[in-house]
Simulated assay, not measured.
Amino acid sequence: MLKFLLPVDGSDTSVKAVGEFIKLIGWYKEVPEIHLLNVQYPLRGNVPMFIDKESIDLYYQEEGLKELRPARELLERAGIACRFHITAGTPPDMILRYAEEIDCDQIIMGPRGLGAVKGILLGSVASRIMQLATIPVLLIK
Rank of each mutant, 00 (worst) to 15 (best):
I107V: 02
R97I: 04
I107G: 13
A133S: 11
M130I: 06
R112Q: 14
L114W: 09
A133V: 02
I107E: 08
L132D: 02
A116L: 15
A116E: 12
L122G: 02
L121Y: 04
P111R: 12
L114C: 06
L121G: 03
I95G: 08
M130D: 00
G123Y: 01
V117W: 09
G110Q: 04
D105I: 06
I102Q: 03
S127W: 06
C104E: 07
I102H: 00
R128P: 00
A116I: 13
L114P: 08
L96E: 07
D105H: 15
I108P: 14
R97S: 11
L121S: 02
I95E: 07
L96K: 07
V117Y: 07
C104A: 15
L122D: 03
A99E: 08
E100K: 14
G115W: 02
E100A: 13
A99P: 11
L114F: 11
C104K: 05
R112P: 04
V125T: 11
I107T: 01
D103P: 11
P111F: 07
G119T: 03
G119K: 14
Y98P: 07
P111Y: 08
A126Q: 02
K118E: 14
I102C: 00
R112Y: 13
S127D: 09
R128Y: 01
S124I: 06
L114I: 14
L96A: 10
I129G: 04
A133K: 01
R128N: 02
M109Q: 02
V117P: 06
A99C: 11
G119Q: 09
D105Q: 07
V125C: 05
I120A: 11
P111N: 14
Q131T: 07
C104N: 08
S127G: 07
D103H: 15
D103I: 13
E100I: 08
I95F: 08
R128Q: 05
G123S: 00
I120V: 12
G113C: 11
Q106N: 15
I120N: 09
R128V: 00
L96R: 06
I129P: 11
I107H: 04
M109W: 08
I102L: 06
K118R: 15
I102S: 01
L121K: 05
D105E: 04
E100C: 08
R97N: 09
G110Y: 05
Q106P: 14
A133I: 02
G110A: 09
M109G: 04
G110D: 12
A116V: 12
I120L: 14
C104Y: 05
Q106F: 15
Q106K: 15
Y98K: 13
G110L: 03
L132G: 00
Q131H: 05
C104D: 10
V125F: 04
V125S: 02
Q106S: 15
G113H: 01
L122H: 00
V125Q: 00
